[in-house]
Design a protein around this nucleic acid. Structure first.
Length: 443
RNA sequence: GGAGAAAUGGCAGAGUGGUCGAUUGCGGCAGUCUUGAAAACUGUUGAAGGUCAAACUUCCGGGGGUUCGAAUCCCUCUUUCUCCGCCA
């Protein structure tokens, strides 16, 4: 969520940059939020003044009663409403009447204030993050900018098979069985298929740890506050599985629990950057995305992913984004998969991101690019919701920046490994994985 | 799941209706002393809104209530601890 103070002070800039994200109602929403905020501050002042008077009265009554000077109370009451005369014994009642009046006023002001704040909030949560100045213009994935390409696309013989056929041929993955147990999109990995999964998880975690990330094992169900903190709620509840009985959501990515570790936390500047990694299964309903690109491992309801998350000082976050991008690229190089890196255009970026790189591997039999990672800088968009802050050298509290990336998502890596490395004698396991799998060939 | 107890500032721990945003200790920061460090001493040290800056307001697990006035009393929710039951 954008900060209202920033929006207020940089309206033109905000509108200009929202246009890059093709956000339609920017002008109306921003203008209204700013005007509501002005009203809000006036109300706040008014309410504060009323409270200040009530507090002062209560305090004085306390002092008078404490000193036992009932006569003092009489004088006090007279000053309260100067031209009013009181009959005996009414002094205290007069004071009470005045505070009751104030209290009523306070309540009505606070109700209005609260409503105003909610209105502003409702408007602001609809506004996406501002894209970084380097984000290319564009509306569709066609407009993404390829910033890096690596590796040779293998040329496969005519007999080459897509991964879902290979998976069946070598008895690695049973899609039908998954349907029996759960439903479409919940495959069962078996034998070397299961072992390959486990090998990849361990390999990715070991690499992340070596790169300075601390491993965490978070819960894979989260509450509503967490869903809100990273921005899945209130908008995308339809994409998450929900356990109604306990009001918990199955995580769509480890980003949610790991980033929420830092919700309502004030960090010391020397603790930054915080680098966490974690393996979790991820659950996505993928409502409305059916078609042929869901074939095999291309799009699942449950899949495994290793996520890297960093909480950084604002002035370092873009440098860190590049480091994270290099880190993920390094993994793909080691796995010997041809890949490209895209800088997403304004129209293709996620709601919360300021700059995103997508990493896509070449899937040789399907002859298409598959997204296996997305590395983003959210700047202070998430941390504003999370209230994740740090104290700088001057003792001032500022919002941190948050970043995350997949490192990596397994299914499409597996798909690409199977397809690209297929030979007449079986599928060759990449060298770096052999010590994790314990076998060199799948046959 | 049943019974009881508790939830206060980075941590520990006072405070049971009236200058309490909160005693005190530890920790942190700054200074004095020292060649330097430690120790000792002095000062300082929560967050949010608001303001040019102040004033001022809010926050003692969350929400609601009683009262002129609540950290303090009442209701409710959540969490933690102890005991019992069940159990990987």
């Amino acid at each position: 969520m954008l900060q209202i103070n920033f929006v207020r002070e940089n309206k033109e800039e905000v509108l200009k940059r929202l246009a890059v994200k093709n956000f339609k109602d920017a002008d109306a929403i921003i203008t209204q939020a700013i005007s509501l905020d002005a009203e809000r501050r006036l109300l706040q002042k008014e309410s504060d003044d009323v409270k200040a008077e009530a507090n002062a009265l209560a305090k004085q009554i306390g002092e008078l009663m404490k000193s036992g000077k009932m006569g003092g109370i009489k004088e006090f009451a007279k000053n309260l409403i100067p031209n009013h005369s009181y009959s005996k014994g009414q002094e205290v009642e007069a004071i009470k009447a005045r505070t009751a009046e104030l209290k009523q006023k306070e309540k009505s002001l606070d109700d209005t204030l609260k409503a105003k704040e909610e209105e502003i909030h409702t408007l602001l949560v609809q506004v996406p993050n501002l894209p970084n100045v380097s984000v290319p213009l564009g509306k569709t994935p066609e407009d993404n900018e390829t910033v890096f390409e690596h590796g040779e696309k293998p040329t496969l013989p005519a007999t080459a098979q897509p991964h879902w056929e290979l998976a069946t041929k070598y008895n690695l993955i049973d899609f039908e069985l998954g349907v029996k147990l759960t439903g479409a999109g919940f495959p069962v990995y078996k034998g070397k298929g299961a072992r390959l999964q486990r090998a990849l998880i361990n390999y990715f975690l070991d690499k992340a740890i070596a790169a300075g990330y601390m491993e965490v094992q978070p819960p894979i169900l989260v509450n509503e506050d967490s869903g809100y903190g990273t921005g899945q709620l209130p908008d995308k509840e339809g994409q998450m599985y929900f356990v109604g009985e306990d009001k918990l959501y199955l995580i769509p990515t480890a980003e949610v629990p790991i980033t929420n570790i830092y919700r309502d936390v004030i960090l010391k500047e020397n603790e930054l950057p915080i680098k966490n990694c974690g393996y979790t299964p991820c659950f996505r309903r993928e409502a409305g995305s059916y078609g042929k690109d869901v074939r095999g491992l291309n799009r699942l309801h449950q899949f495994d992913k290793i996520e890297i998350v960093q909480i950084a000082a604002p002035e370092k976050s873009y440098q860190i984004l590049e480091e994270m991008r290099e880190y993920v690229a390094g993994l793909l190089k080691e796995l010997n998969l041809p890949f490209r890196i895209l800088k997403l255009c304004g129209g293709d970026m996620s709601f919360a991101s300021a700059l995103t790189y997508d990493m896509e591997v070449w899937s040789a039999a399907q002859k298409r690019w598959l997204e296996v990672s997305s590395v983003s800088n959210f700047e202070s968009f998430q941390t504003n919701r999370l209230k994740c802050r740090y104290k700088d050298a001057n003792g001032k509290t500022n919002l941190c920046h948050s970043l995350n990336g997949s490192a990596l998502a397994l299914p499409r890596i597996v798909a690409s490994l199977l397809e690209n490395n297929q030979t007449d004698n079986g599928i060759k396991v990449p060298e770096v994985l052999v010590k994790y799998t314990g076998f060199e060939m799948i046959n």
